[in-house]
């Protein structure tokens, strides 16, 4: 198995992150050792991926201004703007 070059970039909370084409937002962020994807509304707790397949909605982020998007199933597109 050979990993292709991480040839696209996006921003997560204004930080630049690179990704391999085809990777989901969560996969690219885990590769960059960024496991915390959001804080909860009430308790302010850190959350990350949990089910990893789009069922549990724990990994939701805001993508290009649209809230509640699942980081584990949405693939990164070059220049995407992702926020917790």
């Amino acid at each position: 198995m050979t990993q292709p070059a991480a040839s696209i970039t996006f921003t997560f909370n204004d930080e630049k992150v690179s990704a391999v084409p085809g990777q989901t937002i969560a996969a690219a962020l885990f590769s960059a050792n960024q496991k915390v994807l959001r804080k909860t509304r009430m308790g302010g707790e850190d959350r990350s991926i949990f089910c990893g397949i789009g069922i549990c909605w724990d990994c939701v982020v805001t993508v290009n201004g649209i809230s509640n998007q699942r980081a584990c199933i949405i693939e990164v597109v070059d220049s995407m703007v992702v926020q917790s």
Binding site: K35, V36, S48, I49, F50, C51, G52, I53, D58
Partner: peptide, 10 residues
């Protein structure tokens, strides 16, 4: 609920 705890499927 801590980051890093997940299902085997994930």
């Amino acid at each position: 609920t801590l980051p890093g705890v997940m299902t085997p499927g994930a």
